[in-house]
């Protein structure tokens, strides 16, 4: 078999293993985001949202739908890779991959696609739930799908890096709790940054999640707080940097080899 043939089968194996892993525990991986998002729609969208009125010319519940979908994609892409790859390190079955003729980029690609698959599945579930509360119309299918996938890739990569450095279960919960959740909540999921004073608007622009949420919202509703072209460049830039960094960590064996 040629090297490319080996890589293809190895990649498929990692992805299949990852998908089977999160599907086996769907009560922990797929169901919770569905319940949480339903509660968001009921509490923020229906009960509180109807008193808020319009935001950027849309009903509040319509305004928050894109952000809530993308938030679930971000959290689940990240969580899948960080917990799975940390588990392989902790139980030492990372050695199954290290001993085999699998290049680092195939290992990284397999885990990232596993994370993207879970992110996509949860995103679809949340979108279906959203249809019970709103009349969802998509402004640009292409852009919506592109941002959906790129965001998922970016956070799967971030989860991978977290897992490489993690030495304990605390280390894989610190970043999601103290970094990811605040960035997501302050990333314009529930509000337009136009509501903020000028200083806080400028501070918000340093938050990468803001660009993803707004570009995704533009894809669905056609409104955004920022220039979509700049947002896409920023997202692609982050993906490039995180990919290069992840590959460097793997090639140096950080956290996985002595």
């Amino acid at each position: 078999m040629t090297s490319w043939g080996i890589y293809r089968v190895a990649f498929q194996t990692i992805v299949t293993k990852e998908v089977l892993r999160f599907m086996r525990i769907w009560m922990q991986t797929i169901l919770p985001p569905a319940i949480t998002t339903t509660l968001y729609f009921i509490i923020f969208g229906k009960l509180i949202g109807e008193r808020i009125g319009e935001m950027d010319g849309y009903r509040y519940i319509d305004f928050i739908v894109p952000g809530l979908i993308l938030m679930s994609v971000i959290q689940n892409s990240y969580a899948n890779v960080v917990s799975s790859f940390f588990g392989t390190k902790l139980q030492h079955y990372i050695e199954e991959l290290l001993i085999a003729p699998v290049p680092n980029w195939v290992v990284l690609g397999g885990y990232v696609v596993g994370g993207v698959t879970r992110g996509t599945l949860v995103g679809i579930v949340v979108t279906v739930i959203a249809l019970f509360f709103t009349d969802l119309r998509v402004n640009s299918y292409g852009l919506t799908l592109l941002v959906f996938i790129l965001t998922s890739i970016l956070f799967a990569l971030a989860g991978f890096i977290n897992a490489v450095y993690a030495k304990s279960f605390d280390d894989i919960s610190i970043v999601p709790t103290f970094v990811l959740t605040p960035l997501t909540y302050l990333g314009g999921v529930f509000y337009s940054i136009q509501l903020l004073p000028n200083f806080w608007q400028q501070v918000s622009l340093a938050n990468p999640v803001l660009y993803m949420v707004n570009t995704f919202r533009f894809g669905i509703l056609g409104v955004s707080d920022i220039d979509v072209r700049i947002a896409l460049v920023i997202i692609l830039g982050f993906i490039t940097i995180l990919t290069a960094y992840s590959l460097r960590l793997l090639s140096r064996g950080v956290g996985i080899k002595d």
């Binding site: 890589y7 089968v9 498929q12 085999a100």
Partner: peptide, 11 residues
């Protein structure tokens, strides 16, 4: 099966 897959052996 997974270990075989890492060596390029189809499922």
């Amino acid at each position: 099966v997974n270990q075989a897959g890492y060596y390029g052996i189809p499922r």
